[in-house]
Design a protein around this nucleic acid. Structure first.
Length: 500
RNA sequence: GCCCGGUUCGUCUAGCGGUUCAGGACAUCGCCCUCUCACGGCGAAGAUCACGGGUUCGAAUCCCGUACCGGGUACCA
C-alpha cells in the first residue's frame, strides 16, 4: 500500500448523504475539512453521496448546501453528485471484475442469514468467501434467475491496515474482513466502493470524516489495492454526543445547523464552538474565543482528539454571547430591528417624538447587547418597551407592595419623577442624570433607601425584577407611559390590598 | 459473538516519563462593581487521571489485562 505522494496540493472533501438536514456532527466534519484546506492552501470540495435512492431527497441536498453556505463553507469547485457518476462507477466495477478482484455472487439472502447465525453460535466472525457455494449451488441459483451481487475478492491471510492521522495505526486480520458487496444485484454500486472510487477521481489527498467510518476504511483500502491505486491519508474525527453520552439527537435540543440559525446563534460562534469539539490549538496559553482567521491559522489534524465529546449548549450560548458583544452594532441592528418589527409591529415606541422610532429601536437594542446570549433574546427581553406589563413577578409584588406605606411611596416616587423629568428633547444621559440625582436627593431627604424607591419602579415598567439600568429604561419608555405604568402598578397593588 | 476504537473536574479540554498531590474554559457558589440583571474583575469548590497488574529510581503519560462506552460486522451511508 502506498500513500499519495507528500507535498502535492491538499484536496479534501465533505461527503454527506442527503438523508436529512445538516446536523452538528456533519457540520463539524465539514468544518475540519474546510479549516484544513484553508490552513494548507488546499481545495475544499463537496460531494453528495446520494446512491441510496430510498433515503436521499433533493430537499436534503438543498438544506445541506444552504447550511454550509450560512456557515461560510462553500466548495471551491462544483458539487459532485454520486448518482451522476454511474458510468464511471460501472467502468470501475468492470475493471475490478476484469482483473479478477471481484466476482458475481448468487448466494441468496436466506442462505447468508443462516450462515451468519451459524457463525454466531460458533463464536466465530462471519466472513463471506468465494467458494462457500459449490459449483452446483451456483448453477442452481443462476438458473433460478435470481440476480447476483458483485463482491470484492478480499485477501484471506495477512492484515489490512492504514495509518490514521488521528488514531494512529489501524489494522485488522484479513480473515475478519471477508468478500464484501460492492454492487447490488441491480448493478448499482455501494458506499465502500463509490466512496473510494470517487475520492480517487476527485484527487482527494486527505479523507477526513467521522470515527464511525474507521472499520469501513479497511474495506476501502482493499478497493484501492484492487484497483492498484495509492490511498489518500485518512483522518477520523471523534463523535459528538448528547449530554447523556448517547449519540446527539433531536431530544438533546437543536441538532440541525439551521435550527441554531433560527435560535439566534451566530455562524462565527457555532464554528468556533464546533472547532473546539475534538480539537484544541497548539501552545501553552489557552485560547477559546478564536476568530475564523485564527482558527485557520492554528488548525492542524495532529491536534485532533481521539475521544468523543459531549455537546454543551451552555458553553455554546456563552460563546455566542461573546460574539454578540464583539459584533459591530450595525450588524446587530440589521438582524434585530427586523426581528422586533416582526414580533411587535408598530406597537409602542416614541410615536412622532424625536429622535424617532428608528433611533428608539437602536437605543433599546443597545440596552440588551451585554445581556443577550442569542440574537433571539433581544425580542424576548425587550417586550415591555412595546406594551405595558400585564402582570408582575409575584414574589416581587408581594415583597414590594404589601403595605399601604409601600404603595403610598410608589405614588410619591411617581410624582417626583413626573416633576423632575426634564422638559423638551432631553438626551438619554440628561434624563438619566437628572432623574437619578433628583430621586437620590429625595430619598436622602425622606429617609428612604434608594433601592426601596427604585425597585417598584422597575416592576411597574417591566413587570420584572431584572432589567437594564432603570433610568435608561425610563428614558425609552417615555414620561407619559412611565407615569401611567407607575399609576397602574399602584392601583393594582391597592386592589390586592383590599382583597386580602 | 467477532473485529476496531475510546476512557483526565458535571461538560469542553491542557498534559506527550520527573518542574503537576494535574493547568484553563463553561456551568455552580462567594466577593467586588452596582438601582436590579447582565458585562467585567477577584476568589472558592470540583479529577484517588475508569479499574487491576507490570516496566522504571520515577507514570495521567509506556506495556498487558479487566470493566464500561462507542463504531463496524447490510444488496445503508
Amino acid at each position: 500500500m502506498t500513500d499519495i505522494s507528500a507535498g502535492s496540493e491538499v484536496r479534501v472533501r465533505f461527503a454527506p448523504s442527503p438523508t436529512g438536514y445538516l446536523h452538528v456532527g456533519g457540520a463539524r466534519t465539514a468544518l475540519f475539512n474546510w479549516l484544513y484546506a484553508r490552513h494548507t492552501g488546499g481545495t475544499f470540495l463537496v460531494r453528495i453521496e446520494d446512491t441510496d435512492l430510498e433515503r436521499s431527497t433533493p430537499e436534503s441536498v438543498q438544506q445541506i448546501l444552504d447550511s454550509l453556505e450560512w456557515l461560510g463553507m462553500t466548495p471551491d469547485e462544483e458539487v459532485v453528485y454520486q448518482t451522476r457518476r454511474a458510468p464511471e462507477h460501472k467502468a470501475y466495477v468492470d475493471a475490478v471484475m476484469a482483473s479478477g478482484h471481484a466476482y458475481h455472487d448468487y448466494c441468496p439472502k436466506e442462505k447468508l442469514e443462516a450462515l451468519r447465525e451459524q457463525a454466531k453460535t460458533e463464536h466465530r466472525a462471519f466472513v463471506y468467501r468465494r467458494g462457500l457455494l459449490t459449483e452446483d449451488e451456483i448453477e442452481r441459483f443462476k438458473a433460478s434467475g435470481e440476480p447476483g451481487v458483485i463482491r470484492l475478492r478480499a485477501p484471506e491471510t495477512g492484515n489490512t491496515g492504514y495509518d490514521d492521522l488521528v488514531y494512529g495505526r489501524i489494522e485488522a486480520p484479513n480473515e475478519t474482513i471477508g468478500d464484501f458487496v460492492i454492487a447490488r444485484a441491480d448493478g448499482s454500486p455501494l458506499y465502500n466502493f463509490t466512496n473510494a472510487v470517487d475520492d480517487m477521481d476527485m484527487g482527494i489527498t486527505h479523507v477526513c470524516r467521522g470515527e464511525d467510518h474507521v472499520s469501513n476504511t479497511l474495506r476501502q483500502v482493499l478497493v484501492y489495492e484492487a484497483l492498484g491505486r495509492p490511498t489518500p491519508q485518512f483522518a477520523h474525527l471523534p463523535l459528538i454526543l448528547g449530554t447523556d453520552k448517547k449519540r446527539l439527537s433531536k431530544r438533546h435540543g437543536a441538532t440541525s445547523v439551521m435550527q441554531f440559525h433560527e435560535e439566534g446563534v451566530l455562524p462565527e460562534a457555532l464554528l468556533n464552538f464546533m472547532a473546539l469539539l475534538g480539537w484544541s490549538p497548539e501552545g501553552s496559553e489557552p485560547e477559546e474565543v478564536m476568530s475564523l482567521d485564527r482558527l485557520v491559522e492554528a488548525f492542524t489534524l495532529e491536534k485532533v482528539n481521539k475521544s468523543a465529546a459531549v455537546f454543551d449548549y451552555d458553553k455554546l450560548h456563552w460563546m455566542n454571547g461573546m460574539y454578540i458583544r464583539q459584533l459591530p452594532k450595525e450588524e446587530i441592528y440589521k438582524v434585530v430591528v427586523p426581528a422586533l418589527d416582526e414580533a411587535y409591529g408598530a406597537a409602542g415606541g416614541p410615536g412622532d417624538e424625536p429622535p424617532g422610532r428608528a433611533q428608539w429601536l437602536r437605543d433599546i437594542i443597545d440596552l440588551e447587547i451585554e445581556r443577550s446570549r442569542t440574537m433571539k433574546d433581544f425580542a424576548v427581553n425587550l417586550d415591555y418597551f412595546f406594551a405595558a406589563p400585564t402582570e408582575y413577578e409575584e414574589k416581587a409584588a408581594k415583597k414590594l407592595l404589601s403595605t399601604q406605606e409601600q404603595i403610598d411611596r410608589v405614588r410619591q416616587v411617581t410624582a417626583e419623577i413626573d416633576k423632575a423629568w426634564p422638559a423638551g428633547a432631553a438626551t438619554r444621559d440628561e434624563v438619566h442624570d437628572v432623574l437619578d440625582a433628583h430621586l437620590r436627593a429625595w430619598c436622602e431627604a425622606n429617609g428612604v433607601k434608594f433601592g426601596q424607591a427604585v425597585h417598584p419602579v422597575r416592576l411597574a415598567l417591566t413587570g420584572r425584577t431584572a432589567s437594564p439600568p432603570l433610568f435608561d429604561v425610563l428614558y425609552n419608555v417615555g414620561k407619559i407611559d412611565t407615569v401611567a405604568r407607575l399609576t397602574a402598578l399602584a392601583d393594582y397593588a391597592e386592589k390586592r390590598l383590599v382583597v386580602s
